[in-house]
Design a protein around this nucleic acid. Structure first.
Length: 424
RNA sequence: GUGGGUGUAGCUCAGCUGGUUAGAGCGCCAGAUUGUGGCUCUGGAGGUCGUGGGUUCAAAUCCCAUCACUCACCCCA
């Protein structure tokens, strides 16, 4: 156990970190271009925030939270998602007092306790955005567009954007009524979990994968058909905006997202090839959430994207090539005096922003060159007794193999010039 | 939480129905080239066969338990 990481967590080894940094770079770039500002909230929060914010009846709250009491008996939970904490910070710091909308993004680890499998971990990472303060369908469309643009910038292909509207509390109640009526005579045929859902949250039956339930639900009244005028109009406008900028999508009336707080727009991005977990992102509008969390009635829209799944897809689509690390200069030193000299040169080169390294394993000349090669050094500087004698160092081009001599007196400026092409 | 699969060297894996010194490729170290890398050749180091128990004259191999990994279900990113 001492040398084993906790279940469902991952170490990102140096090679792996390369991809992550690239993805993170794109996150910051795209958000800045779309006018979003980064927010960083704590990794743990008071448990009640998620109970209220995510919803008591959701699976996340019912069985997937990392909850514990701290030394002062406070009830703490490692964040399972990013929206509730962002809402909390938005309220705590009264960001709604500023000119609206507030456009935020976040990126970082999330925690959910469940059995790990392909594309599902106990600690995973999300990139998400939240826009507070506007009900304009243009914002729904912007948020969706940002997500799709993000995938596109990473080079991802074959994505499906599913959108739906789950209406407002008013049309939802009406639809719930209709749905329960429809299901009543067929209740016996539903699968075990759906029999329970019929009472508590009938909408979720649309999500069921059991063939029997699917068959039943096929002819059921959809929420989309029961939308009130306002909600129907909102949904139509979101679609219009998406069409106007050629974002392909499909209306998926069966899609109902698992988090309780969604209203109107709900969307999800699906991709094949990364196992049973095909969703690489999802989001929607949550006009009641801020109020639910104890704030003013302020609308919001946002999404959360799973970075592990996105990176898995990138790998699957051959978009990840690992570059070898590269070094400008590797200094090969032989003997004590040469080592002392090499150390000072190394230091000066680094201060001039030359990527440089040397041997600390007591290797032979041959082995040091081998190491230089492994590190991808473009050049090698060789300093041995013979060189010290002549007050020079051997300069070797590792690609061509050509060698020449450099005077030690002006070695740093000469090397800087050779490496960077700049004169001092 | 439920079910299936897997656990042998740093990595990827072989090891037939139990049979004695557990192998290969890659990587690592060294030599061939007494001060010159990449290619090649040669040699070397490195393993509590996940862990604990059991069956047996004998277990990496069979049985049980346990842990870990993995895939799937539930659900989600």
């Amino acid at each position: 156990m001492l040398t084993t990481r906790p279940r469902g967590t991952n170490d990102l080894l140096p090679q792996e970190v390369q991809v992550w940094r690239e993805v993170e770079r794109v996150v910051h770039e795209i958000c800045s271009e779309y006018g979003y500002q980064e927010i960083r909230t704590p990794i743990f929060e008071h448990t009640e925030l998620f109970q209220r914010g995510v919803g008591e009846t959701t699976d996340i709250v019912e069985k997937e939270m990392y909850t514990f009491t701290d030394r002062s008996d406070r009830n703490i939970t490692l964040r399972p998602e990013g929206t509730a904490p962002t809402v909390r910070a938005f309220l705590e710091h009264k960001l709604y007092a500023d000119a609206q909308p507030t456009k935020l993004y976040y990126m970082g680890p999330m925690f959910r306790y469940g059995r790990p499998q392909k594309g599902r971990f106990r600690q995973f990472h999300q990139f998400g955005v939240e826009v507070f303060g506007s009900k304009d369908p243009a914002v729904d469309a912007e948020v969706i567009t940002l997500a799709m643009d993000f995938y596109q910038r990473l080079g991802l292909r074959g994505l499906e954007l599913h959108i739906n509207s789950v209406g407002c509390p008013k049309c939802r109640a009406e639809h719930r009524e209709k749905l329960q009526q429809f299901l009543e005579p067929r209740a016996e045929d539903l699968c075990e979990t759906c029999r329970g859902r019929r009472e508590r949250n009938p909408l979720r039956i649309f999500d069921c994968k059991s063939p029997v339930c699917r068959e039943i639900v096929k002819d059921a009244p959809t929420i989309t058909a029961s939308l009130c005028d306002q909600c129907a109009k909102h949904f139509a406008q979101v679609q219009e905006y998406l069409r106007s900028i050629d974002i392909p999508f499909m209306v998926d009336e069966g899609m109902v997202r698992g988090l309780d707080y969604y209203t109107n727009t709900a969307f999800e991005i699906i991709v094949e090839g990364i196992g049973a977990q095909s969703s690489i992102g999802g989001g929607g509008r949550y006009d009641g959430l801020v109020e639910e969390c104890g704030g003013p009635a302020i609308p919001g829209v946002g999404f959360g994207l799973g970075l592990e799944r996105i990176i898995a897809t990138m790998k699957q689509q051959g978009l990840v090539e690992q570059k070898q690390q590269n070094l400008d200069v590797f200094i090969v030193a032989l003997g004590e005096e040469a080592n002392r000299k090499a150390f000072t040169i190394l230091n000066e080169l680094r201060r001039k922003h030359v990527k440089a390294d040397h041997d600390v394993m007591g290797r032979s000349l041959k082995a040091q060159l081998k190491q230089a090669n492994r590190l991808g050094a473009k050049y090698v500087l060789i300093i041995g007794e013979a060189e010290l004698e002549k007050n020079v160092a051997v300069w070797k081009d590792m690609v061509s193999g050509e060698q020449s001599e450099i005077k030690l007196d002006s070695i740093v400026s000469t090397v800087v010039e050779k490496v960077t092409g700049r004169k001092e």
